[in-house]
């Protein structure tokens, strides 16, 4: 464990909690892409099946359980409890255009052609593009609630911190995982224009509104 990975995990946890609290407190999922949340639930489910087969640490297991629990709770709030506030018209990204190519790539490019490894690879690739429906929805509505931008900032920051973690592990533990690193770079790059807007607008107290 290193400081980048720990702060990365905490940033990820913060994002998940911020979103869950936003929906729960405001009793509304306006501006939130349910499709992205479903993709994240799939990402966690396919990546954390090893919860059943291997134990790494209390930290590892508890974080995985929290991530999976919150992901499904968020999907439940969006599609069941507060579905009246779900903005389906603007959440129109065709996720099959993500899941199918990612699934194919996971079968073709992986470290080991085994069931768990292919699922893990699928989850890594899927996570790198899972935020696209959410970013697409914001570009369609032209704006985002400030709390949603904080959620996105923490979510984008987590994988950027993981990139630093992988540099650290390469240097100190001569370890690197090309699949995770390439997917992590793609994932972080997708947030760049959002990061720019967040830093130039939200941090200056303005509302995040895209040029319509």
């Amino acid at each position: 464990m290193n400081v980048f990975r720990l702060t990365g995990d905490l940033s990820h946890l913060a994002a998940i909690i911020i979103l869950l609290l936003k929906i729960w407190k405001s009793r509304s999922c306006a501006g939130i892409s349910g499709k992205s949340q479903i993709l994240f639930a799939i990402v966690f489910t396919t990546r954390y099946l090893d919860l059943l087969t291997s134990f790494i640490s209390i930290y590892n297991t508890s974080m995985k359980v929290i991530y999976i629990g919150c992901a499904y709770a968020t999907v439940y709030l969006i599609y069941m409890k507060f579905r009246a506030t779900y903005d389906g018209n603007h959440d129109s990204f065709r996720v099959e255009f993500l899941v199918v190519p990612v699934g194919g790539l996971a079968v073709l490019v992986n470290h080991d052609f085994s069931f768990l490894e292919i699922l893990w690879t699928f989850s890594i690739y899927l996570e790198s593009v899972a935020i696209l429906p959410q970013l697409f929805m914001i570009s369609k509505t032209g704006e985002a609630e400030t709390i949603t931008t904080h959620y996105l900032f923490c979510l984008g920051l987590y994988r950027a911190l993981y990139l630093l973690n992988w540099i650290w592990r390469f240097y100190f533990e001569s370890f690197f995982d090309m699949i995770a690193i390439v997917a992590g770079v793609v994932q972080t790059v997708l947030y760049c224009d959002f990061f720019y807007l967040y830093i130039t607008k939200v941090l200056k107290g303005k509302k995040l509104s895209l040029p319509a």
Binding site: N60, Y67, H111, D112, D177
Partner: peptide, 10 residues
């Protein structure tokens, strides 16, 4: 990176 080693991350 072989299976198992990398999987200590979330």
């Amino acid at each position: 990176a072989k299976l198992g080693y990398f999987k200590d991350e979330l």
